[in-house]
């Protein structure tokens, strides 16, 4: 099956053809994220946001943890400033992903705006997983996953928001417990070391201790200091 052209062909194909493993990685991640999209849409409506606001958060903010945070803080009775601050602290990591991806994507103008908007955990994660397959595979992984998650995340947000809206009394459906359970599902995989678990438990204790004292929203932001204090020393 070998011919003198083989090398040339393979090289040529590399430009246009996307490796099937990259497509598979991207697709499976995009679809999995859909489940979280339903949870977000439902959580958003359960916390008082309209279906339109829920969908705009998914379209424009497009970062799961930040979105859950803003609806969580507002739902707990916080003011918009604490909600935005909490969401933004969680959004800093997307900036760090941008730093990693920018030299690999090398895009400017409108393309950079698009690339920035889809710079999230999943797109960066899949891109870095393709590292052994070369620079093209990384770019493909980034864009396929970014766009894939964008589409599924937004469709499923709409579904979750409409579903929650149709429920009426959300407590009768258990949605008021499903929301913190969804947060828990987000944080659980991050608790890898003993130190991580200590931080989580301290944050729970601090937030609950401050809840009767501080205005809503601030007890949550205050726990960022635990992360800063622990992370500050090597």
């Amino acid at each position: 099956m070998s011919s003198p052209d083989n090398g040339y062909l393979r090289q040529n194909r590399r430009v246009s053809k996307v490796a099937s493993t990259t497509v598979r990685d991207s697709f499976s991640v995009s679809l999995t994220v859909g489940a979280y999209g339903v949870a977000f849409g439902a959580a958003s409506v359960a916390n008082g946001f309209s279906v339109l606001q829920s969908c705009l958060l998914s379209l424009l903010t497009f970062s799961g943890a930040s979105q859950f945070a803003v609806v969580g803080v507002m739902g707990a009775g916080g003011n918009p400033i604490s909600a935005i601050a909490t969401a933004s602290l969680l959004g800093v990591r997307n900036g760090l992903y941008g730093v990693i991806m920018a030299p690999r994507l090398k895009v400017r103008g409108i393309k950079r705006i698009v690339a920035a908007q889809i710079t999230i955990d999943e797109s960066t994660g899949v891109a870095l997983n393709q590292e052994s397959r070369g620079a093209d595979a990384m770019r493909h992984g980034f864009y396929l996953t970014g766009f894939g998650v964008f589409i599924f995340w937004n469709l499923f947000t709409l579904a979750g928001a409409l579903g929650a809206q149709a429920m009426g009394d959300i407590r009768a459906w258990g949605l008021d417990a499903a929301v913190p359970a969804a947060f828990l599902g987000l944080v659980w995989p991050r608790l890898l070391t003993h130190r991580d678990r200590i931080i989580a438990i301290s944050a729970v204790a601090l937030a609950l201790a401050l809840t009767p004292i501080l205005p809503a929203g601030l007890p949550i932001i205050a726990t960022a200091f635990i992360a800063i204090a622990v992370g500050f020393r090597p």
Partner: peptide, 17 residues
């Protein structure tokens, strides 16, 4: 710090909610 912040904030959100 950036890796630890989601752990603290999300755990706090779970508790408060």
């Amino acid at each position: 710090i950036n890796a630890l912040i989601p752990i603290a904030l999300l755990s706090a959100l779970v508790a408060v909610q």
